[in-house]
């Protein structure tokens, strides 16, 4: 069914498979879960998939860490790694803010289940 070359090709793209699986898992969790904490977890998985994507992108086969040293010809690209350091920081900030909001929501609604919150909100009048 599969010849060796195809299988090699597919395995060679393993980092992309990991990224796609993680991304879809995270995305699905964000959409399908009603629990706000689980949504945040899903969002994190979603973001992590992008981190993996960037990090694997910068790796050059056989390349070493980008430090000048005699006898080393190939280096990995450091730029995506640096970028992702920033993205991780942003991700942490986002997560902490999301968790803080969940805590506040729990205080005011006594629940963190989205459908329950919607039921409560449905009956509320609009007063600024």
């Amino acid at each position: 069914m599969f010849d060796l070359a195809t299988i090699k090709d597919l395995l060679g793209l393993v980092n992309y498979w990991v990224v796609i699986v993680l991304m879809m898992a995270g995305f699905y969790t964000v959409i399908a879960q009603h629990n706000l904490i689980k949504k945040v977890v899903g969002l994190n998985i979603f973001q992590v998939s992008v981190f993996v994507f960037y990090i694997s992108m910068g790796k050059v086969s056989g390349g070493s860490a980008p430090i000048l040293k005699d006898g080393i010809e190939t280096y990995s690209n450091p730029l995506p790694h640096v970028l992702i350091l920033t993205a991780i920081v942003v991700g942490v900030a986002t997560t902490s803010l999301a968790l803080a909001l969940v805590v506040r929501i729990h205080h005011s609604y006594d629940t963190i289940e989205e459908d329950e919150i919607q039921t409560i909100e449905h009956g509320e009048e609009d007063i600024a």
Binding site: T94, I105, E121
Partner: peptide, 22 residues
């Protein structure tokens, strides 16, 4: 915002906004 629904609105925006930015 004064209304507690501001919290859920912000949370929803956070989820959507983060997906957009990602």
């Amino acid at each position: 915002g004064q209304d507690r629904r501001a919290l859920t609105a912000a949370f929803r925006y956070l989820i959507m906004g983060t997906i957009g930015a990602t």
